[in-house]
Design a protein around this nucleic acid. Structure first.
Lengths: 206, 206, 206, 206
DNA sequence: GATGAATGAGTATTCATTCAT
DNA sequence: TATGAATGAATACTCATTCAT
């Protein structure tokens, strides 16, 4: 079952990107990793930037998007906390993979711009929402059902959930730590619990 | 008042890094921006990586560190919420400046490694703590004073505060948005409020 | 009849090497001399060292090796002296061309190492012998036929023949003298005669 | 007993030259090895070439010259063979040290030229003879005393003695072999014996 | 579609040398 | 004398991309 050349290039590029970094992910290096000639890349992608954008749009994001889009089916079911835990778990795994690569894009503003534009047009085509707004919408729905505190700010809560996971994953990558399922799982559980609970001391209820 | 050549190089490098990105921050470009010859850079820095590490260690982090280190003097004073708001404000401003540059380091693993090592040795020399542990320590102290809920998790709360700010700033930069004091200020206030409050609905206290 | 790019590079490199010296034989200079772009060199050679090694292995040594390898066919034919004269002549011509280039390699130990290794692997592949051992083997064969004195040391004689020619050529190059066929021819004849005769005074045979 | 700065530079330069090669013997590297500032070199030598020429003229050659100049005192004393053996021994030791450095000069024609000119003017100033002519003169004197065969060619014999030693030493250096006193001593003895004896079979003296 | 040679601008870094201190 | 910052040209090599096959 021979993979298509285009797919081999995408896979090779992601591998190089992950292991050697964006700066070392030259078209030649990628071609070598994919086992094809230098020029072949240009039969499948407009240029180097196009290839990297495709990695995100075709390899990294789809799975993540799919999970996120199912959130709306859960409204009113199970417990909010359980849903957040599951979601945070998935988000963390995604960020471990994707965050360092996305961060690297900041090294090449032109690439970043191309990625931004690609995301924007994808959003239009597939009516794709970014993760935080999707989660915020879910939380608002639960809020209407009385399963989330009325004084809570769903937008910020969603931002905090994803933001904390993303930063945590990026820092772990920076420190060279690989994901350790147990510690990471604990982190996620504690994070969700904290978001549910808050810091303010409760007045004793009589 | 002529700045020292070394300082001119540091300033120029930061400017190039911020405006054109790491990949375009070549030694030549930096030298040109600093108004000195190509080779001069190497009279003041061991190599390109050394220069970038110096930008973080000498230009970006010191101010931030100083603010953070003063946290311990605030224990028991004012309100916890007010301190968190002030801190988040400062952190956000810092991340707007520093996060895109730090993110870009992921494009060059060797550079990232050098930065990691430099941070580590600085930590030993100056007994520098990373931001989150510092904040967590403060929260634990307040917890002991009963000004933070006993069931709260200071470590996670600190992680969430900084993580959310960092991710928010990085996304704003990604979207090409420049810091808008009012919207950002609102974000920070809401974030702190959310962290204080939590999502769980409160039982009516009769 | 267009020469291949690789060959043009080899020729150009040898020309530059001979006329301007190893230190001035930069990749750029060679590319310019070959009439191709800077980068083209790297489509045909792994690096600069690889190119120089190729000059010796593909341009300079093969002809010389071929002559040397035919020595064994001469055993017992003609006179030993005539064979040595012919060989010394050829060796001298070779050294005029190759000795200054080989000497220059001592300026760059890494290059020297690469050349040494290349020679070694060639020796295995082509069962190539170095000149002196080849000549020594021939002399030993002639010795067995009684055409070389039994008390002679073929190894040393071979060493002396080539060594003297090599040193002579190198000194001539050092002095800026170009090969002058007549003087050099005389030198070779006298050298061979001397090696045949020896310095010790002969007892009068009566 | 502090060495003069000039001497420290000479020593450092020779060390660098021997261990890292001419190409790596930059003025900066030498200054670092000598433990002085970059610019100091230019207080003692006109330029880089001047320093290298001085190494030969002041450090390497004087001892060797002194030995050679004493040859004339030996005329008629001891045996010719013993004198040649001693001389070859000394020459070989000298070439082990000096030959790779001299060879390297061929990499930089300008340097070679400067060395050539320096040698020439030294020859005038100190009436210095090159080794081979000195030895040839000695041999001619012995020839007149009947201690060297009349049909011998002193010029060529001298050339062969030094040339063979020089080539042998250079090849050993090329192969990365360090001087092994015993093998080298054997080589020298055999070389002298061979030069005395010759290759031609002797007619049985009845 | 696939190839891989050719391009020439671009990279980080080193160089010998100067000169004000 | 000694210093070491400044110079700017030079170094080997890599780059994304093109295009004839």
């Amino acid at each position: 079952m021979m993979a298509t050349t285009r797919q081999r290039l995408l896979d090779a590029a992601e591998r190089v990107l992950r292991t050697k970094g964006l700066a070392a992910a030259s078209t030649r290096e990628i071609a070598r990793e994919a086992g094809c000639a230098d020029g072949t890349l240009y039969n499948h992608f407009r240029d180097r930037a196009d290839l990297f954008v495709a990695i995100f749009l075709e390899k990294l994001l789809p799975d993540y998007w799919e999970v996120l889009s199912k959130l709306s089916y859960r409204i009113g079911e199970g417990t909010v906390q359980a849903h957040l835990e599951e979601l945070a778990q998935i988000a963390l795994a995604f960020y471990y993979k994707a965050a360092p690569m996305r961060a690297a894009l900041f090294a090449e503003p032109e690439l970043l711009q191309r990625y931004r534009e690609a995301l924007k047009s994808q959003a239009q085509i597939r009516q794709q929402e970014r993760p935080a707004p999707l989660l915020a919408a879910y939380l608002r729905a639960e809020q209407r059902l009385g399963r989330v505190a009325v004084q809570a700010n769903p937008t910020i809560a969603a931002e905090a959930l994803f933001g904390t996971c993303a930063s945590y994953a990026l820092r772990q990558c920076f420190l060279g730590e690989s994901p350790t399922s147990e510690a990471d799982r604990q982190f996620v559980l504690e994070l969700v619990r904290s978001l549910m609970e808050g810091l303010s001391p409760r007045e004793p209820s009589i």
